[in-house]
Simulated scan of single mutants.
Amino acid sequence: MSTTEAVERESEPQTEDRWAAVRDMPPSAKLVAKILDYEDTLTQSEIAEESLLPPRTVRYALSRLEEEGAVDSRFSFSDARKRLYTLNI
């Protein structure tokens, strides 16, 4: 086995473990997590726009992801009525 192959094999389980918290969640939560993986920080309405999911579905997905500790949320400094969501895995 070459050094390159060994490094690739070592990095594969880490990638899988990263998504372990999301693996058994509904498809909507997985989609929201993947969108947050591509985009650093988004509001709920931005996630709904990006995912084409209804706001209610996004809200449910975010609550499930927060319960598992996969997503962090904080208040927006520019608009305190909105929360910003960031992937935590």
Rank of each mutant, 00 (worst) to 15 (best):
Ala70Glu: 10
Val7Arg: 06
Ser2Leu: 07
Ser78Glu: 15
Glu49Asp: 09
Thr15Leu: 15
Thr15Ala: 15
Tyr38Leu: 06
Asp24Asn: 13
Ala61His: 00
Phe77Thr: 07
Thr43Met: 00
Ala70Val: 11
Ser76Cys: 03
Pro26Cys: 03
Met1Lys: 02
Ala21Asn: 09
Glu5Ile: 13
Ile35Pro: 08
Lys82Thr: 13
Ala61Leu: 05
Thr43Ser: 11
Glu16Leu: 13
Thr86Asp: 11
Glu16Cys: 03
Glu50His: 07
Leu52Tyr: 09
Ala33Lys: 00
Val71His: 00
Asp37Phe: 09
Ala6Phe: 13
Ser28His: 04
Ile47Asp: 04
Ala33Trp: 05
Arg74Phe: 01
Arg23Val: 07
Tyr85Ala: 02
Ala20Glu: 14
Glu68Ile: 01
Val32Cys: 12
Glu16Gly: 02
Pro27Tyr: 06
Phe77Gln: 10
Pro26Lys: 13
Pro54Thr: 02
Tyr38Thr: 04
Arg81Phe: 13
Leu52Lys: 12
Phe75Cys: 06
Ser78Gly: 03
Ile47Asn: 05
Trp19Phe: 11
Tyr60Thr: 15
Glu5Pro: 04
Lys34Ser: 02
Ile35Glu: 09
Met25Trp: 00
Trp19His: 09
Thr15Gly: 12
Gln44Cys: 01
Leu52Phe: 07
Gln44Met: 06
Leu52Asp: 10
Gln44Pro: 02
Arg83Gln: 10
Lys30Ser: 00
Glu49Ala: 13
Ala6Gly: 10
Arg59Trp: 09
Pro26Asp: 10
Ala20Ile: 10
Asp37Met: 07
Arg81Glu: 14
Leu36Lys: 05
Lys34Tyr: 00
Lys82Trp: 11
Thr57Glu: 11
Leu53Cys: 01
Ile89Lys: 13
Glu39Ala: 09
Asp37Val: 06
Glu8Cys: 02
Glu49Gly: 12
Phe75Met: 04
Pro26Tyr: 09
Ser63Gln: 13
Asp17Ile: 14
Thr15Tyr: 14
Val22His: 06
Thr41Asn: 05
Arg56Pro: 01
Ser76Ala: 14
Asp17Thr: 15
Thr3Glu: 11
Ala70Ser: 12
Glu67Met: 02
Arg56Ser: 09
Ser45Glu: 08
Met25Ser: 01
Ser73Gln: 03
Glu67Phe: 02
Tyr85Asn: 04
Asn88Leu: 01
Leu36Asp: 03
Glu10Met: 11
Thr3Phe: 09
Arg56Met: 08
Ser11Pro: 10
Tyr38Pro: 00
Pro27Phe: 10
Glu10Ile: 11
Glu66Ile: 04
Ser51Arg: 02
Val58Lys: 11
Leu31Ser: 04
Ala61Gln: 04
Tyr85Thr: 03
Val58Gly: 11
Met25Phe: 00
Glu67Gln: 08
Glu67Leu: 08
Arg23Asp: 07
Arg18His: 14
Ser45Val: 04
Ala80Lys: 12
Gly69Leu: 12
Ala20Lys: 14
Arg83Asn: 10
Val32Glu: 08
Leu65Tyr: 12
Tyr85Ser: 04
Val22Tyr: 06
Leu65Lys: 12
Ala61Glu: 08
Glu49Cys: 03
Ala33Asn: 05
Ser76Phe: 03
Ser73Tyr: 05
Leu52Gly: 06
Leu42Gly: 05
Ile47Phe: 06
Pro54Gln: 00
Glu5His: 06
Arg59Lys: 15
Ser76His: 02
Ser2Gln: 12
Leu36Tyr: 03
Ser63Ile: 07
